[in-house]
Write a protein that binds this DNA or RNA. Structure first.
Lengths: 219, 219
DNA sequence: TAGATTGTTAATCGATTAACAATC
DNA sequence: TAGATTGTTAATCGATTAACAATC
């Protein structure tokens, strides 16, 4: 299906990219609750956005509603899935099988939505050979060979900071075009590679800031 | 110390809150590398911001630089710590001792920066009584009593989605004023409570969107 | 002093919102 | 038809950037 709403060459603003997954989550809930129909005003009410913003966001990608009716939940959810690109499967490799890596590897939701961890790598000889979630843990030395034989969409970095950049380089060399980075490292990548960071420390610091904000002496 | 830069009543824009931890990380690196002095232009170069933005961000909180010189790294880092509120200690409780909870509980960085996990709670009888990082895992039934006796700054929710809101309610009832939420649940809290979310699924969906963006049919 | 760089103001850019014609 | 709600345009709001006087 061709999406015609967005004008040629226009890029999608960051805010829209942030809100799309929120819409996805809400529509998924609505669908499993059996709701058939929803208006932008109702979505806005539930998610604390303005109705105009929701209509404006969606209009980047097409016209999915009907005047006087609103949106069909199932139809809109399908469109949002299409937009997010999760109608196709994504192959992933996970590097780092420590606590965090194991936690990521155990998330059932990923597999359900077509994000499949195909291989796990680590440096620790004690971990190599173990299985996690039906997937053998391999030596990091094998990653280049693996990637050559198994083209991979997404590389997950769950290593300590010190290993972040070198692992990233291995992934990029192996043709991986997107990196999901859980390490505190700031990664340098070529232009064509996408990086999405989960910086736990940044998140905790934002929380601390807002917790202490009113103590800054000029309330 | 009183910070005088921000005009009374002005709120700090979201973008500034997002960038402050990035400045913190970079200044910490500079300090341990022994760098004494830095200009806004240099910071901008390293972090991919404009120099003007950095100066503008900092000026919300005061004047920390010197014309013709720039900023003293150590001094600016101290100021940023002050601004983020991490010159004081923060007490935390962790709810959920699964893989993710264990991963969070193992982060040494938190303790080093004064964020101290004082107690861990779970519902699983197999986990209760175990120790993790020198901290006993207690029954969730004890949390209200615990919080009454031990005032706590931050509550970490690392439970499945289904338990998210009820755990959140227990924390808020217990006087916790800020929630670090790793569950996929969208939490409802009173106005005075701060929520900082780590939504793994949203993050992965943003990655998928950008990975598939150019496939949308109107490149 | 001359050179460098700040903090801040004004100009620019982009995102959000309000309003409404189109129309189901 | 009358009522409701879309998609989009124009107005508003806020954040970023460029420019520069102040000054170390």
């Amino acid at each position: 299906m061709t999406l015609r709403g967005r004008k040629k060459g226009e890029t999608v603003p960051q805010g829209v990219v942030v809100r799309l997954p929120v819409y996805f989550r809400y529509l998924t809930e609505l669908e499993s609750a059996g709701t058939e129909r929803i208006s932008s005003a109702q979505i806005g009410e539930a998610l604390d956005f303005t109705a105009a913003q929701i209509r404006s966001d969606l209009s980047y990608f097409g016209s999915f509603g009907q005047q006087g009716y609103g949106y069909n939940v199932k139809e809109l959810l399908d469109q949002v899935k299409q937009i997010l690109g999760i109608t196709r499967k994504h192959s992933m490799v996970l590097v780092g099988a420590g606590n965090l890596g194991k936690a990521i590897g155990s998330y059932e939701w990923f597999r359900e939505e077509g994000f499949d961890i195909k291989a796990i790598f680590d440096v620790d000889p004690h971990l190599i050979g173990n299985y996690h979630g039906g997937c053998a843990i391999r030596s990091i030395d094998e990653i280049s060979t693996y990637l050559r034989e198994n083209p991979t969409d997404i590389g997950i970095i769950a290593t300590p900071k010190s290993a972040g950049q070198s692992v990233c380089d291995l992934l990029v060399e192996g043709g991986v075009r997107s990196i999901w980075n859980f390490s505190p490292a700031h990664l340098s990548v070529p232009d064509h590679v996408i990086v999405e960071n989960i910086h736990l420390t940044d998140s905790l610091l934002r929380l601390a800031f807002r917790l202490n904000e009113h103590n800054l002496g000029n309330s």
